[in-house]
C-alpha cells in the first residue's frame, strides 16, 4: 500500500497513504456527529486501505474523539477487521455450527495446505488471505465459504483448487504473475 508505482497494465497508480488519510479525514468529518460512528468508519477505512493501518486508526480515534484503546478494542473484537495487509482475495471459511458439523474444518485444513498459510496469514505473493468466519446465514448449504463477496456452497476439500482458479485468472484482473514485481517495459 502507498507505493508510488503505477501498475504495468496502464491503470491509474494506487493512491498514496497520505491521499487515503485525507479521504479518511473527510469520512470521519461526515460521521463525527452520528451516534455509533466508530464501526461504519472502520469499515470504510478498511475498504479504502485494504486493512487498518495504525496511522488510519489513530486518525479515526482523534477524529471521533475516541480513546485509541477503544478503537483498538473494537478492531480486535470483530474478526472482520484486520490490521495486517490482506491479499488480493480474502477466503473466509465458515466454522459456524452447521458448517462445522458438515466438514468446515476439513475445508479449512485443505485451504491451509493448498495456500501454505495459517488462519490470519497472507500468501507471500499477496494473492490470498485466509480467515475463519462464524456464519454467513447459509447454513442450509453448509459447509459454506466466501471468497471476497461470493458465497460458495457445499464446498468439499477436493473442490477448492477449482474455486481458487476462478480468482487466479479472472478476466480483467491481474494474474498472480502480474502482481509480482515485473519491471515496466
Amino acid at each position: 500500500m502507498g507505493s508510488e508505482k503505477g501498475c504495468c497494465c496502464g491503470c491509474a497508480p494506487e493512491p498514496s497513504e497520505e491521499d487515503l488519510l485525507k479521504r479518511l479525514d473527510e469520512v470521519v468529518a461526515e460521521y463525527r456527529a452520528k451516534p455509533g460512528a466508530l464501526i461504519p468508519v472502520l469499515q470504510i477505512a478498511q475498504g479504502m486501505f485494504g486493512y487498518l493501518p495504525e496511522s488510519a486508526l489513530k486518525r479515526v480515534a482523534l477524529g471521533l474523539g475516541k480513546a485509541y484503546s477503544e478503537v483498538a478494542g473494537v478492531v480486535g473484537f470483530y474478526s472482520y477487521f484486520t490490521t495486517v495487509p490482506r491479499g488480493k482475495h480474502l477466503v473466509r471459511v465458515c466454522l459456524g455450527t452447521a458448517c462445522y458439523v458438515r466438514g468446515g474444518k476439513a475445508v479449512l485444513d485443505a485451504f491451509k495446505a493448498k495456500l501454505g498459510i495459517d488462519v490470519g496469514q497472507t500468501t507471500p505473493d499477496r494473492m490470498y488471505s485466509l480467515e475463519v468466519a462464524r456464519c454467513f446465514g447459509a447454513c442450509g448449504l453448509a459447509p459454506a465459504i466466501m471468497v471476497d463477496d461470493d458465497v460458495h456452497h457445499r464446498v468439499k476439500p477436493g473442490r477448492i483448487s477449482q474455486i481458487l482458479a476462478q480468482y487466479s485468472e479472472t478476466k480483467g484482473e491481474q494474474s498472480w504473475q502480474a502482481e509480482s514485481p515485473t519491471p515496466t517495459p
Partner: peptide, 18 residues
C-alpha cells in the same frame, strides 16, 4: 482511556491498544 478490553473471549486482555 488508556485501558480497554482488547481481543475477545478467553484471549481478552484489559490493557492499552493492541
Amino acid at each position: 482511556g488508556a485501558l480497554f478490553p482488547q481481543d475477545r473471549g478467553f484471549a481478552t486482555v484489559v490493557g492499552p491498544a493492541f
